[in-house]
């Protein structure tokens, strides 16, 4: 299974004074099993790109194929393929609308034409996926939950559609460190269980460094870097700067130490890991 983005260009407001090329010749393939991070400054084209991946918008030029099926088509097959790519928008809790948590999550599978029995099974499954207890929360109003819980309900609504690819646009924006860690450890768990491939758009480089197996850097409507996150963070700082994005705070600190001649574990993705390695080198240093 794969999403094939075939040399796509997207122009907003074509023929008007506001004409803007949001994507200019993006060509890439996302395979099933990948955890892809997408970074770039505001206006770099990352949101436009992900909206193509489940056919919310269609390219001005080029094609987007999911398992070989062109999403721009009107065939039943094209519509079915769009449903295999789930999208969680920024601040997804703003889209909650039903009276109870269970009904809100049921909206997607019901629209897919599932029978009521399947719908309920999927709601239960999706709620346990995002760590919300069915008996406690199913009958509650989603609007009476905390921000972090509302976001989980919204994510569960997409998961209940059983996508093969899950796109998340800034899922941790506005959450405190605990809420952020919860959301991401959950995403990581699903990914490791092989439930689906993940495409994560984030300004939070920490999360990207920790989770993604592949990183795409967008700038001015183009994909300017594509590779292993740490390779990009460590060896392409100039390009990253030009693209208006940063390296993770930990990497930044480690590189600053390295510049002063301190031997650092520059690939570390957590402070614990970095402290362990630093301690080992520095302690040996003092003993001789």
């Amino acid at each position: 299974m794969s999403i094939r983005v075939e040399n796509i260009t997207y122009i907003y407001g074509g023929g008007t004074p506001y004409e803007k090329t949001a994507l200019a010749g993006v060509d890439l393939t996302i395979e099933k099993g990948e955890f892809v991070g997408i970074i770039g400054h505001t206006g770099s084209g990352k949101s436009t790109l992900i909206q193509h991946l489940n056919g919310l918008i269609h390219p001005t030029k080029g094609r987007v194929l999911v398992d070989g099926v062109d999403l721009a088509g009107k065939s039943k097959e094209a519509i079915a393929k769009r449903h295999t790519v789930g999208m969680v928008f920024q601040y997804p809790e703003q889209q909650l609308f039903e009276e109870t948590v269970a009904q809100d999550i049921a909206f997607g599978p019901r629209n897919l034409g599932c029978d009521e029995e399947t719908v309920e099974a999927r709601v239960r499954e999706a709620m346990s996926f995002v760590g919300l207890d069915y008996d406690t929360y199913a009958g509650r109003s989603p609007f009476r939950l905390s921000g972090g819980q509302m976001r989980r309900v919204a994510i569960a609504g997409v998961i209940a559609m059983k996508p093969d690819f899950l796109i998340l646009d800034e899922p941790s924006a506005g959450l405190d460190p605990v809420g952020r860690r919860e959301i991401f450890s959950q995403i990581r768990k699903w990914y490791e269980e092989g439930a689906f491939s993940v495409i994560l758009v984030s300004h939070n480089m920490d999360d990207i460094a920790r989770l993604a197996t592949r990183l795409l850097v967008m700038s001015h409507g183009r994909c300017v870097l594509d590779g292993r996150p740490m390779d990009i963070f460590l060896h392409h700082r100039k390009e990253l700067q030009e693209a208006g994005v940063d390296v993770p705070p930990l990497t930044k600190t480690l590189l600053a130490l390295k510049e002063r001649g301190i031997p650092v574990p520059e690939e570390a993705v957590s402070c614990e890991e970095a402290a362990d390695a630093l301690y080992r080198t520095l302690r040996e240093g003092t003993s001789c």
Partner: peptide, 9 residues
């Protein structure tokens, strides 16, 4: 804070 340790390596 860390530099003094390095000079001893």
């Amino acid at each position: 804070a860390l530099c003094p340790f390095v000079s001893k390596i």
